[in-house]
Amino acid sequence: MATDLAKPPVQAAPSEPGRASGRVPFRTALRRYRWLYLMLVPGLVYFAVFKYLPMYGLTIAFQDFVPFLGYSGSEWVGFKHFEALFTGPDFGRLMFNTLFLAVLTVLFVFPAPIVVALMLNELRVSVLKRSIQSLIYIPHFLSWAIVASLTYLLLAVDFGVIARFVHDLVGGPKVDYVAQPDWFRPIIIVQTLWKATGWGTIIYLAALAGVNPNLYEAARMDGAGRWRQFWHITLPTIRPTIVVMAILTSGNLLDASFEQIWLMTNSLNRSVADVFDTYVYYIGITQGAFSYSTAVGLFKGVAGALLIFGSNWLAKRLGQRGLF
């Protein structure tokens, strides 16, 4: 490594406020760190080409877009599609379903990896710890189609293992779990927990590995028990990670997992299953209502952005370091 690369420009320790050295004029900085800036270029190009340029397509939300006529040929209609969405019969239901799933995600899916990571961290036999960790993140690599098929196999009213167990052995009622609207959300949440928790623990375990062992030693000297150590050392050290993860998650809250929900939807549970993402797919791609579905997607995007800014602001208000 050349010497000037050894000093990355931003190297503030978590506790340090502000930047390390005094302000350097941008030109000087540009010259001094030119190789680093150059390395930034591919990333910027990637975002420009694949994330920002396509946003041009959002204009069709304000048009009656006919693909054949293109962006320039289609008629401009202002906020017609947004009006149709907000006054339409589906909006309330979509909003409720999406938010309900989001709330359940925050309550159950978000804390799960933290809890599991903390529990794994307390394990002292490292072979056990590592094998458990590997085992629980395997489901992450299965596609939703497989998870959905497994669910059907377990829960099918006729031959599903769990359904049969509940009915034949426990003497419970014969329930068609996959068709009951009441069971839809629990199934979705359990599927997500099963698939995502193990993978989610990785980042927290990494954060936990970074805790300075000296702190534990010192605390033990002062007579702190296991619980005290956990409460006063472990948790505060991983708190920044939790906050960053929370802010990032908040932006995706409205992105209910499309594939998962699409695969679990049927005529009987559609009323609770429809969320913005499945609606956009169904209306936009399969029925060709491009403008309308773009309007729905844009609304969702704006709401997601607001959630990120909101939670970032909230984090700062609560005395945590925000994301930006």
Partner: peptide, 17 residues
Amino acid sequence: VSKGAVLDPIVSDARVK
């Protein structure tokens, strides 16, 4: 053409229900 996607499931879902 413009609303069929919203209209169709109303009755077909209700029938199954």
